[in-house]
């Protein structure tokens, strides 16, 4: 591979990786706090993609801008979902949580299938095929904007967890549940907020992805797996890890597409996953459990 191509692949991969990272961040927040693995994560991403698609069709709203209202709506969905459906399962065994969320994922995908059909959808943005050129390196414009948007949402999220009292309380609950309950934090509310924040991440990421790729309801399971892979590579429950994992997987996928065939993409990320699990089971940025 020539050097310009190498740099191009690296940059494109990192830009996509930032969007992946945002999606995975949602999964990581939910697991880190609520201790429930959201097996419907990719399905929510696809739901957000369709929301962006519809908003584009109705109001010609750019999916990258639509990510803001969609994230807000997803926060509400997540909050209510945790309160009404997931909360009773928090203390139940893992396989029961799994079935609940798999049931939910089946509902989402097939509702989308019923409404929109199996056709592949995409949005035509005026700048879809434009690119920035630096010397002989070409970078897709839309990917740059998408990555910037993802970075902005991520920054807001980090600020929320660092500087707001709710954010700090959530981190406290994630760190020491009993302690948090003892000092009088409303853990159920914090869980609901966390699930909402997690879905807001995946909502924003899904909307941005609508600008980058074609989409069908069938894409959902592979997105769920992608989010898992990223989060495990980075370390379940670690926010920095989710971002780093996103970048790593983004670059690995871009490299695999360029070097081999696009179908080898997920093979490479699974390979990476297995290597990371073998060498560092808690993930690159995860804390080893005592």
């Amino acid at each position: 591979m020539s050097l310009p191509l190498f740099v191009e692949v690296l940059i494109q991969g990192m830009l996509t990786g930032l969007v992946y990272g945002l999606m995975a961040l949602g999964l990581s927040v939910i697991f880190g706090v609520v201790r429930v693995v959201n097996f419907a994560h990719g399905e929510f991403a696809v739901l957000a993609m369709y929301a962006a698609f519809v908003l584009f069709g109705l109001f010609h709203l750019d999916p990258i801008i639509a990510s803001i209202p969609i994230a807000a709506a997803f926060f509400v969905i997540g909050y209510l979902l945790q309160r009404a459906v997931v909360q009773p399962f928090v203390t139940r065994p893992q396989h029961e949580q799994f079935i609940l969320l798999v049931g939910l994922s089946i509902v989402i995908v097939n509702a989308l299938l019923l409404i929109f059909g199996p056709e592949s959808r995409h949005v035509d943005l005026p700048y879809s095929f434009d690119s920035f050129s630096i010397g002989s390196i070409l970078i897709d414009e839309v990917r740059v904007y998408g990555a910037l948007a993802a970075l902005a949402v991520t920054a807001v999220l980090f600020a929320f967890f660092r500087f707001t009292s709710t954010g700090v309380a959530i981190r406290a609950a994630a760190d020491n549940l009993v302690g948090a309950a003892v000092v009088g934090l409303d853990v159920k509310r914090l869980y609901a907020i966390s699930f909402g924040v997690g879905l807001a991440c995946v909502g924003a990421a899904g909307a941005i992805m609508m600008a980058l790729t074609d989409m069908t309801p069938m894409l959902a399971p592979s997105l769920t797996l992608l989010a898992f892979t990223i989060v495990i590579v980075g370390g379940l429950g670690s926010m920095v890890g989710a971002l780093a994992g996103g970048l790593l997987i983004g670059v690995a996928e871009a490299a695999a597409s360029a070097l081999a065939s696009p179908s080898m993409k997920s093979m490479v990320s699974f390979g990476l996953l297995i290597v990371v699990l073998a060498l560092r089971p808690q993930g690159l940025f995860g804390k080893a459990e005592a």
Partner: peptide, 21 residues
Amino acid sequence: APGAKALVYGFLLMGIIAAAP
């Protein structure tokens, strides 16, 4: 329509696991 069966199936799964864990 494709998806109708699976949609009901998904709801049933959620119902069963909630009612009879």
